[in-house]
């Protein structure tokens, strides 16, 4: 049904889709309610990881004892997102698929290539408000960011998205490959095919190390990240780093992680190499570096 009808959408928690429908940014003709079809369990996998059902609520995922014990960065990222009420509704799959909070995407009077392909990008026009928007991975057509916190931690953990389509075929997509950069088609945000449904997200065996998530914003809660940093740091000084709030997808690069022993500046210089910020959001480069530096200092005690 979903595959055959481009005007159909799946709905689970609805925490973003309903907002977009109220503004008529999304106007699906059919909503397919996937609540109640199972997919709401967290199971251990044969290789020592976890399979998180697509409909596991953010609150339940964050509170799961195994997640808290073995994937602390995920719990920390989850509870840094949204509010308690929203996390109670929001699902794992829905969180991955939420859309940008760029103000021009939300204002239907304004040109936006993501909402109305070919109309232009107001955020890149003279005098636009772009403080929140992206600095890397963006294009001349779109500088929106992906707003998820959870996805940043999942990317750090090398999560894999499992899907199925209408004919029963399944795919396993590493989160690294899941999102599409805007390029000339900012309206295309993932590699999912029409009708393809996320069934689970799997985590490999635990990484150990010190796991931290620092979401930076001007108020203490209930705001999207200016920059967020997910970090796993091992005793030997190696580790992983992923950034949120800077790009259309979780931003991570193994070459940059190799610089961890050389400190935050080295990591961020590599990770944000090629950044193309606006005047209003150039501070995000400094902010990412200083946030990581503070986290490294804390992690090392």
């Amino acid at each position: 049904m979903a595959a055959g009808n481009p005007a159909a959408k799946f709905i689970a928690g609805g925490t973003n889709l309903l907002d977009l429908m109220k503004l008529e940014i999304e106007a699906p003709q059919h909503l397919i309610d996937v609540n109640g079809i199972g997919l709401d369990q967290i199971e251990e996998t044969d290789d020592g990881g976890l399979r998180i059902g697509a409909l596991v609520r953010n609150t339940d995922l964050a509170a799961d004892e195994r997640v808290r014990r073995d994937y602390g960065v995920l719990t920390r990222a989850l509870v840094a997102g949204a509010s308690g009420q929203l996390r109670n509704k929001a699902t794992t799959a829905g969180n991955l698929l939420q859309r940008t909070r760029c103000p021009y995407f939300y204002d239907t009077n304004m040109a936006c290539n993501k909402r109305a392909p070919g109309s232009g990008c107001t955020a890149l026009m003279e005098g636009a408000f772009s403080k929140q928007l992206g600095i890397i991975g963006t294009s001349d057509n779109c500088i929106a960011t992906h707003p998820s916190d959870m996805a940043i931690a999942l990317r750090l953990l090398d999560a894999v998205v499992e899907t199925t389509n209408g004919s029963g075929a399944t795919r396993e997509i590493p989160l690294e490959d899941f999102y599409a950069l805007p390029g000339d088609t900012p309206e295309v945000e993932t590699i999912l095919e029409p009708g393809e449904l996320i069934t689970a997200v799997t985590l490999p065996a635990p990484l150990g190390g010190v796991q931290m998530y620092h979401k930076v914003r001007d108020r203490a809660s209930y705001a999207f990240a200016l920059v967020s940093v997910a970090l796993v740091l091992q005793d030997d000084g190696t580790g992983r780093v992923a950034l949120g709030g800077v790009a259309p997808q979780p931003w991570r690069m193994t070459e940059a992680e190799a610089e961890l022993p050389n400190g935050a500046a080295a990591v961020i210089t590599r990770l944000l190499d090629g950044a193309n910020p606006t005047e209003e959001n150039a501070f995000k480069i400094t902010l990412a570096e200083r946030t990581l530096a503070a986290m490294l200092a804390e992690a090392r005690g």
Binding site: R101, D107, M110, G127, A128, F129, A220
Partner: peptide, 25 residues
């Protein structure tokens, strides 16, 4: 209120964009 000086309006015109203190503040 963030002024979009190109188009002459307040761009962050909802309660997600216009931040007021929350309990945690």
């Amino acid at each position: 209120l963030a002024v979009d000086t190109g188009r002459g309006f307040f761009a962050n015109h909802d309660l997600a964009g216009y931040e007021v203190p929350v309990h945690a503040d």
